[in-house]
Design a protein around this nucleic acid. Structure first.
Lengths: 377, 377
DNA sequence: TTGATTTATTCAAGCTGTGAATAAAGTGCG
DNA sequence: CGCACTTTATTCACAGCTTGAATAAATCAA
């Protein structure tokens, strides 16, 4: 971005921006665009020299731990992804210490093989009740242990600050960074996949609950005696919509023994969706019920939060065509037209890959704020 | 408050406070305490001179329009209530113009008889979808008309600015002003009475939805084929908990013709509650179902917003003893212990009288902000 | 080459808020 | 009564931040 644009954006005078930019350029935080590589000679006037973050200020690793997969991403200080990969590794049955050892080794190995010798921080997202402030995972379907001080444990092992985030919040943040219009007003971002989570943004900032990342919306009970959920309850939103639930119920239809809530993987889910699209009535019923729950869920969000935007994202969007009819019917019967009209509903097909981007950006943000606080004190 | 205290509160140096206070004292906005009327001679040091808002800067009228009642309150610029009263008057069947005439006359007459010649603004709260920004009532069970530009209409008739608010938001604000601990963190204030509304506060500030005051939580549908609601839907929270609903269902039990959703009034509701307390099984069932809905509703709030405080208030708290058993059972089965433990639940018995206080305070706040914006521009 | 146009920098000036010093207004004790 | 002590309020010079105006810089168009 050029200095003038920054000024307009922040409501500051060009003079102030210039002054501040000069400092940051001196410190090496920013680098100025090389004026040579501009070209485009259609605008008159002195061409703007864009400012970028330096690439050499260190990098950040973003991690997502799923049920049997770890996603990793390395991002430098300019925001470029330097490397990314995923590791198949179930974590569920590990003891606390072992779990943290495995995670720390995985992260360290990834940084090593990516040639990153300047990792300044690690951002880690997972499902469940994540205390972002203290870095504790109170409960997660992914982990076997309760109240795990994951940030501290990993931080000690890696010798770097570790920042934690709920995975739906991280995804919401990532999506909002990509779509500017989602950063104004209120955006409720419902992530459907491994589980169901909600990231809620007010003016582009993540809403924070009393302790945990934000909202544990996936475990709102919508049907009094619905199917079993991983949280121990019944009839939660997740118990209808999450991959594990759809997969389990599909297996039950075939009279095969239900697998124990394991994350099925994209191929298995794809097969189920294809079979339903081909007209399998029992599977269509499943998606019909799931769509209805999704409609009710979005309806509750609309009536309660009155958001400007609702984003449905995550791997679960793969079956949006199957969900949509009952989704829309339920939404319509659940909400009042005046309110429904206020919220635009976006369906964003996003993979868990995007999530690590959100973790990194959120971690960078937090680090910046920490730095600012430190400077102020 | 004394100058030092203001400084501590705002994180400013005493020097700055002194300077600013001097200006405001000059302008007559503040008045200093008369040092004579202090007494209490147990603290050493120079005694603090408290600063108050002047009483002579004009007054504000706060109004609440219920189903068949109008509550009015006159508050001076120091925050003292100068007069308050209520008028029995159904507004439901009036045409838009007539309705605004009646309201304007009622407000003007109240101000007149209270001897207020310096009314600077009017704050008006009512149920339903209130566009606080544009002062439009999109829909209200209290009014017969849709999309009524009430603020503009009344403003024109009274020659003063009229600020609108959703009634549950106003109540939430009033309660938070009285209890300092509710002003930090997130407070969800569920008002049960004429209808069911939610006022949500973040750090003492009212949460604002995309267009309307905040949340239309009363019309979340909890039971797919529940009783009829005033909004036209079925199974809304309101359709179980609101006075009109309880009254209607109680009448149905007695095989009397159900009155058409009119607000029953305190005596009629008291009679129903007494009869239930005496052990009437059918009525106990009614309260049992209502308590269960209340528990589910609070559960959804906890899972979605993760508030620090939940306040149950309004006339509906009169039957809290009858609601509590099923309320607590439902809440427990609906929420996860970790989250439930974060929120403290307060039951605040509050009458609609308190509501007008909230309207006035919110109106004053808005006026202050408007002034500040004007000064800045 | 000159003028037009837009971007960036410099600089003096204004505003805000702060620490230090000082004044003010009491209490408590000999 | 006067003196030490304590806490509150005010004054004032000063530092920091931001800004408008003036100026310089970098390009295009004719």
């Amino acid at each position: 971005m050029a200095r003038v644009e920054i000024g307009q954006h922040l409501g500051m005078s060009p003079a102030s921006v210039s002054e501040l930019a000069a400092n940051l350029l001196d410190e090496g935080v920013l680098v100025a665009e090389d004026s040579a590589d501009q070209g485009s000679g259609l605008i008159r006037g002195r061409p703007k020299t864009r400012l970028y973050f330096a690439e050499t200020l260190g990098s950040v690793v973003g991690v997502w731990t799923g049920f049997n997969r770890i996603e990793l991403r390395l991002v430098d200080s300019a925001g470029h992804t330097r490397a990314s990969r995923h590791v198949e590794r179930p974590l569920r049955n590990l003891e606390a210490e072992e779990l943290m050892d495995v995670l720390a080794r995985t992260i360290a190995a990834f940084a090593e093989e990516s040639g990153a010798r300047d990792v300044k921080a690690v951002g880690l997202a997972c499902q469940g009740y994540v205390d972002t402030h203290d870095g504790i995972v109170a409960w997660s379907p992914v982990l076997g242990t309760r109240d795990l001080p994951l940030a501290a444990g990993l931080g000690q092992r890696l010798g770097k600050p570790v920042l934690m985030e709920n995975d739906a919040s991280a995804m919401a943040f990532a999506i909002a960074q990509r779509h500017a219009d989602l950063r104004s007003g209120r955006t409720a971002c419902l992530m459907v996949g491994d589980g169901v989570g909600l990231g809620f943004l007010i003016q582009g900032e993540l809403y924070r609950g009393a302790r945990f990342g934000g909202s544990e919306f996936g475990h709102v009970r919508l049907r009094r005696s619905g199917p079993q959920c991983r949280c121990g309850g019944r009839g939660c939103i997740e118990a209808y919509l999450a991959d594990y639930a759809l997969h389990r119920d599909a297996q039950l239809i075939d009279h095969r023994p239900a697998p124990t809530l394991l994350l099925p993987g994209e191929e298995a889910m794809g097969a189920i969706v294809d079979q339903a699209r081909a007209g399998d009535p029992a599977l269509l019923n499943l998606f019909h019920a799931a769509g209805e729950v999704l409609g009710d869920a979005v309806g509750i969000l609309i009536q309660t939060l009155e958001p400007d935007h609702i984003v449905i994202c995550g791997p679960g969007t793969r079956a949006m065509d199957l969900l949509r009819p009952s989704f829309e019917a339920a939404l319509e019967s659940q909400t009042i037209p005046e309110l429904r009209a206020l919220a635009t509903i976006h369906v964003v097909e996003s993979s868990m890959d995007l999530l690590t981007e959100g973790v990194v950006m959120q971690a960078l943000r937090e680090l910046d704020l920490d730095l600012a606080r430190l400077k102020a004190a």
